[in-house]
Computed example of a mutant assay.
Amino acid sequence: MSDRGFVAQLEGYRLTTAEVHYYRPDAPSLLQLFVWQDHDLAPDFPVLFDFLVHWRREIGAALHSVRVAHDALIRPAEWHAVDDIIEIR
């Protein structure tokens, strides 16, 4: 059994986090925050834009702004060459 997120990362998807700032219909003077996270493809972000289309269609809250962070969780290991030998006695 494989994890959907792991398989998505192997296919090029990366962890994407979006801060969605919005106004509630019952309190239009208050700015609210919703944090969304899923695996997505930069720079087009099709999964995020599908979510935002759903938001506009199904949720009665007006969007103020969306801030996006995107990073790879699976990447090549880093290594550094060392010219010294350390003896442990």
Rank of each mutant, 00 (worst) to 15 (best):
E11N: 12
E11K: 08
E11G: 07
G12K: 02
G12N: 00
G12M: 02
Y13P: 00
Y13H: 07
R14Y: 06
R14L: 04
L15A: 11
L15F: 04
L15M: 11
T16W: 03
T16K: 01
T17L: 10
T17G: 06
T17P: 11
T17F: 03
T17C: 06
A18E: 10
A18L: 05
A18N: 05
A18G: 06
E19K: 07
E19T: 15
V20N: 00
V20L: 13
V20R: 00
V20E: 06
H21S: 14
H21I: 05
H21P: 00
H21V: 01
H21D: 04
Y22Q: 06
Y22T: 05
Y23M: 11
Y23K: 05
R24Q: 11
R24D: 02
R24I: 03
P25C: 07
P25N: 12
D26N: 07
D26I: 13
A27V: 08
A27H: 12
A27Y: 11
P28D: 13
P28T: 08
P28Y: 10
S29D: 08
S29T: 15
L30Y: 12
L30W: 13
L30S: 15
L30F: 10
L30M: 02
L30I: 15
L30Q: 10
L30A: 03
L30T: 08
L31H: 08
L31S: 13
L31K: 06
Q32Y: 13
Q32A: 14
Q32M: 03
Q32T: 03
Q32E: 08
Q32K: 13
L33E: 11
L33V: 03
L33R: 05
L33Y: 07
F34P: 07
F34L: 13
F34A: 08
F34Y: 10
V35M: 02
V35G: 00
V35K: 01
W36N: 01
Q37W: 02
Q37Y: 00
Q37F: 14
Q37A: 14
Q37M: 07
D38N: 14
D38V: 13
D38A: 06
D38L: 06
D38R: 05
D38T: 02
H39C: 11
H39N: 15
H39M: 03
H39Y: 15
D40T: 09
D40N: 08
D40Q: 03
D40E: 09
D40I: 08
L41T: 09
P43S: 09
P43K: 02
P43W: 10
P43D: 05
P43V: 04
P43C: 09
D44G: 07
D44W: 01
D44K: 08
F45E: 05
F45R: 13
F45T: 14
F45C: 03
P46E: 11
P46M: 11
P46A: 14
V47M: 09
L48D: 02
L48V: 07
L48W: 01
L48C: 07
F49D: 10
F49V: 12
F49K: 15
F49P: 00
F49I: 04
D50M: 05
D50Q: 14
F51S: 01
